[in-house]
Nucleic acid binder design. Structure first.
Lengths: 241, 241
DNA sequence: GAGATGGTTCGGTTACGATCGAAGTATGAA
DNA sequence: TTCATACTTCGATCGTAACCGAACCATCTC
């Protein structure tokens, strides 16, 4: 009966609402202080501190002392992938938050998924890259074509530099809001950084959603066109338990 | 702060030790009764009943009444994939069970992962299929080559029949013990069934581990050879009957 | 029908863990 | 030095949920 790894431990780590809020906040990709995380979780600093200690002991988080601040981040991208996987599953079972809140639409449009672009725009970008022949699909996997390397090089992505990292270049990541794949991996990260650098988009405070400037949005949509037309059906998440 | 799907709910479902044991037991792929699951979880029938109700309400389980029995199974293979993902993560962080127990080696050698073969043998099978050119890899994805279809057809796998199902033919599934991919999807399922049908292997009671007969083992190893040599640690004598 | 087996519901107990106030430590600023 | 900020540790409270005994419902066998 008692076999294999202990999923209950990490399940219970994620299972507490306050800790889940902390992890969700850190899915934004940037390092946050204990105070910020306490606010995000809706608990006092003492409580948050206890939670952070547990999460760190569990290997989900790492902290970095900097002066009198302690910055927390997800331990690595495997944690991000794990969480996004659980989010996708939760969304598919209708485990949505009770009050969808006003930020929900912005989240669905464009958000950060640990370090790359997700949401409607993330899915569109990958779809467009595939249509253009820049990325080829094989089962669940993705790979960059020579043409794609050239194409992305022309907009300022140094693909050969990315290859030298140990991290996979292309990975697909299942999007919980769209229920379709978007682009992760070092290439996904590089593309999002590129948008930030160009001033097309920026992060928003206290949210995973990404804000596109009007000009940036225009350019993004032009760079990643879709043949099919944009009004594809949105697969609905049914929310009955 | 409160954004996205509610990961805490499913986290807490998995986070309880009794429920985690139930889910782990069901990863064996076959339907189990409430009484069996109570024994697997180490709790009384009443307690197990309450847990099963929660898991079902959470969409992780389905039950099927048959006579005076109630058979529970994982709701679908997405649940299996989710759990295997969490197991892989837990194993990578060293969240192993306290007492590794005598069954551990057998589990690492060959076990069932919802409905397909995992463990050392599962990884070997996929590696061999790739070496033989039967399956091609593209990033994280897998696809069956024409040659592979012929090859598998010769050992009794009806690939074209499998294609008609909605389920993907080839999927890679990360193995928590080997930390490498093994073959999932309808093809993975069909291969394992094939081994059972031929009498090469059988399930063991109360465990996810798979027992190979001496003859079956010989044939399996011959069918899925590895170039690299097999002498690199052929560990694990199994202790189960 | 009676009896046995499989499973659920109810009620009450118990234990664990989330929470916060208050006090304590570390780092930076004045 | 003194004060302020950032965070941790301690101690106590409190709620919730896991747990089991007992009773209850359902299905099969005889």
């Amino acid at each position: 009966m008692k076999e294999g790894p202990d999923i209950a431990q990490i399940g219970s780590l994620i299972g507490d609402p306050a800790r889940a809020n902390i992890l969700t906040a850190l899915m934004g990709g940037r390092a946050l202080t204990a105070t910020e995380l306490a606010a995000a979780a809706g608990v006092t600093l003492q409580t948050a501190s206890a939670h952070l200690a547990k999460l760190e002991a569990g290997g989900l988080l790492t902290q970095r002392k900097q002066g009198r601040h302690r910055y927390f981040t997800l331990a690595d991208d495997r944690v991000g992938k794990l969480l996004e996987g659980i989010m996708g599953f939760a969304a598919s079972r209708g485990h949505l938050r009770h009050r969808p809140g006003p930020k929900e639409p912005a989240l669905r449009k464009a958000r950060i998924c640990y370090d790359h672009l997700a949401g409607d725009y993330g899915v569109r970008m990958l779809d467009s890259l595939i249509e253009a022949g820049s990325i080829s699909v094989m089962g669940e996997g993705l790979s960059l074509t020579p043409g794609g390397e050239k194409h992305l090089g022309s907009i300022g992505i140094d693909v050969s530099g990315l290859r030298s990292s140990r991290r996979p270049l292309c990975r697909s990541c299942l999007d919980w809001s769209e229920r379709r794949a978007h682009l992760a991996g070092s290439l996904g990260k590089a593309l999002l950084s590129n948008f930030f650098d160009k001033g097309w988009a920026r992060r928003t405070e206290n949210s995973r959603s990404i804000f596109f400037t009007p000009e940036g949005e225009r350019r993004f949509l032009a760079l990643f066109p879709l043949e099919l037309g944009e009004d594809i059906e949105q697969p609905q998440l049914d929310d009955t338990p």
